[in-house]
C-alpha cells in the first residue's frame, strides 16, 4: 500500500497544475471580457476568403 504516497502526491500535483493554469489565465485577462472572444472566434478567416473571392472575380 506504500504506493498510495506516490499516487496521492501525483493527484495533488495534477490539481496544483490546474490551479496554476487557472491563475495564469485569470492574470492574462481571460475572464475580464466574457463576451467579445466568443464572437471573435467565429470570424477568423473570413477576411481572407473574401479577398480571394474578389481576386477570383477579377481574374474571371
Amino acid at each position: 500500500m506504500g504506493v498510495i504516497y506516490i499516487l496521492i502526491c501525483i493527484s495533488v500535483f495534477v490539481a496544483a497544475v490546474f490551479l496554476y493554469l487557472f491563475i495564469k489565465s485569470v492574470k492574462s485577462g481571460q475572464f475580464d471580457d466574457q463576451y467579445t472572444p466568443s464572437v471573435r472566434m467565429l470570424f477568423d478567416d473570413e477576411l481572407k476568403k473574401k479577398k480571394n473571392n474578389k481576386s477570383q472575380k477579377q481574374s474571371n
Binding site: 470570424f43 473570413e46 477576411l47 473574401k50 479577398k51 473571392n53
Partner: peptide, 9 residues
C-alpha cells in the same frame, strides 16, 4: 476593401 462580410453577420 473586401469587407462586405460586415453585412452577413
Amino acid at each position: 476593401n473586401g469587407l462586405t462580410n460586415y453585412y452577413d453577420f
